[in-house]
Design a protein around this nucleic acid. Structure first.
Lengths: 196, 196
DNA sequence: GTCATTTAATGACTACGGTCATAATAGGTT
DNA sequence: AACCTATTATGACCGTAGTCATTAAATGAC
């Protein structure tokens, strides 16, 4: 149906224009009026695509899922599960670092909406799911021996990852610092996971 | 000066009335009008004391500092630094648990404002400082031997603590679960800290 | 007590996020 | 084409956070 294609196209347009404006002027300084004017549509139309202004940031978080999948594809043939997961998460961290200001805001919104809704956001769920799938494969291929259930392992890793992101937003550190800190934390956690 | 006393008194009144209303109806459902009406003052007066409605939540976070100091006093004479710190942080967690809804919101605001301001909030700074002071005392008394600088140790512990808080807001878990998880994480970190 | 000055209180006003009833339009049906 | 229905666009409108010029009050000097 053409309808669907148009809808998605317009949503993408609103999303991209909004991001550009946010980058230029900062989230708070951009009004919904401004976004819609830039897109050549009426103000009300915005809210047909995003329930709240903040939802642009949630969508940004969700759009990282694509990146995640690309990265998993890229590192599909790495043998050691630890290395594989580390590479994937490092890709995410790296991307995060190159758009840090907006990504920080997006993280806040993801956490906030998750804590208000009492359930995890789409993007966190996805990360969890993809990690679980990597871990399961590794288990089945005999590359990982652990007494923990896959879900528990995935949760632990997501926890470390988010802790890293959070520290970053708080400490305003460089990518190299954060990455280093992440690796150290990951080492500790992995030691508890892998009983090979 | 009487001026100062009155000011503080009114700020406290606004703060307490606002908290009560937030608890009754939820943060979003309470208007500034309502808060000021309950206090018998004009709407504009609110903003002489708190720059934003959200700042009530930040103030709530800061008010935990008192609790922190009380707790440190209470456990001042515990010999082992590990036990001492664990007791203090457990007190904080426990208090957090008994006002969890508001404290979750407050945590979000603390993190948010910290990430926007690019620096840590008062409450986080205080926690860091007090931990550092405990650690330093322990070092000087020969009760703790570590190759790490005091600040690094304090940062690591604050990190674990905040990770715990964050997990809590995301997972909607019970106090006992969270507390258990915190102890485990703390054990791991402490192992890296203490080289006695 | 009176005047001057600093500080706090106030509510009309502004700007923006979000709603909603209505208008426009696309797709399908005959 | 003519009509009907479901979907999308729209901007007037509403409620509220936050501003600000003005008023009121407190403090201090003489």
């Amino acid at each position: 149906m053409l309808r669907e294609a148009r809808k998605k196209e317009l949503k993408e347009k609103i999303f991209l224009q909004a991001l550009q404006l946010f980058r230029d002027k900062g989230f708070e300084q951009v009004t919904v009026q401004e976004i819609t004017a830039t897109c050549g549509i009426g103000k009300g139309t915005f809210f047909n695509y995003f329930a709240k202004k903040e939802d642009i940031l949630l969508y940004l978080g969700e759009s990282q899922i694509e990146l995640l999948q690309q990265s998993m594809e890229k590192h599909r043939n790495i043998d050691q599960p630890k290395k594989q997961i580390l590479h994937v998460l490092d890709d995410l961290l790296h991307h995060f670092s190159s758009h840090s200001e907006l990504m920080k805001l997006a993280s806040m919104e993801i956490i906030k909406s998750a804590s208000l809704a009492g359930k995890e956001s789409k993007s966190v769920q996805q990360l969890h799911r993809q990690l679980a799938s990597m871990i399961n494969s590794a288990k089945q291929d005999g590359k990982l021996h652990s007494r923990w259930e896959t879900d528990i392992i995935a949760t632990a890793i997501v926890g470390v990852y988010f802790h890293t992101i959070l520290s970053w937003t708080l400490l305003e550190a460089q990518y190299s610092t954060i990455n280093e800190s992440f690796r150290r934390q990951f080492d500790v956690v992995w030691e508890g996971i892998d009983h090979s």
